[in-house]
Design a protein around this nucleic acid. Structure first.
Lengths: 141, 141
DNA sequence: TGTCCTATTTGGAATAATTCCAATTCCAAG
DNA sequence: CTTGGAATTGGAATTATTCCAAATAGGACA
């Protein structure tokens, strides 16, 4: 029950949903894993160009969308700013620092998650819940 | 400690932050209160035109932004879809029905809200938290 | 190995929501 | 009245993203 190494798990997940493994998908995914600072598509694009100089922005968007479908990556939205991408698979909330714009992952204990889900009245069936804080961060770490 | 009637409270809030009361702001606000279905700016624009035929879309955006500053209205974002506006001042989460696109307010008991806020490590000071469910709704009401 | 078929990538155009801007218009105070 | 700042207006600009049609790339199979 160890997590698979990234490349393994990517190839596996792609195969699971009938998609191919490609250099573009691999590079985009490993870039997300390398620097987990919730980059935008444009930022990922800039970063992967050194590895794959001919990659296009459209492909970066495609790959990111594919990774989201594979459930290896979460798309995160703050207000109207560009979508950011996050390869953290543990249940977590996001904290958006209003001064710096930085985003932090906040682990969500199962107990809290289940209490949150209990606020839903009968007839509401949630497939996902997203919790987003905004404020000022001065993290110890 | 009764809530003030809407117009009162709007004029009050505007005055508090040094802004004027205008027909546009009043009409936009009362339209939000009249049909609380989380309309987009375009939808508000369409609805207020009968009352104020010369109002412009830019003004609707301005007014909505002003109401948000007054803290009489919350801006709600789902993924990348257009911002929706919500005049519900009670602490609540949003439930986004993936089939119909409809949005429901879900009351948040203070206990849940405070438990959610407790997941924040030291050094994280949240000014607001937004909880969004996605899924399928078949509400009793 | 070569061929074919389809998935994928690519670049550029198109779209959609929102913001910007400069020119009026509107008030409210003096 | 006049005047100064606030607010509104219409249209242009911006930004993130999606769309699209053409080119490329891989894998299956003869």
């Amino acid at each position: 029950m160890q997590p698979l190494p990234p490349a393994e798990s990517l190839n596996q997940r792609l195969a699971d949903i009938g998609l191919r493994s490609t250099p573009q998908r691999e590079v985009v995914y490993s870039e997300l894993l390398r620097k987990r600072d919730h980059p935008t598509a444009e930022e990922v694009f800039a970063r992967v160009k050194s590895e794959l100089p001919t990659i296009s922005l459209a492909t970066v968007y495609n790959c990111l969308e594919t990774l989201v479908q594979c459930e290896l990556v979460r798309a995160v939205n703050f207000e109207r700013s560009p979508t950011r991408y996050c390869p953290n698979l543990r249940p977590h909330a996001h904290f958006h620092d209003e001064q710096t714009g930085r985003t932090y992952d906040i682990d969500l204990p199962p107990a809290v998650l289940s209490e949150v889900n209990q606020v839903l009245p009968a007839g509401f069936d949630a497939s996902s819940v997203e919790i987003t804080f905004r404020g000022q961060a001065r993290p110890a770490s």
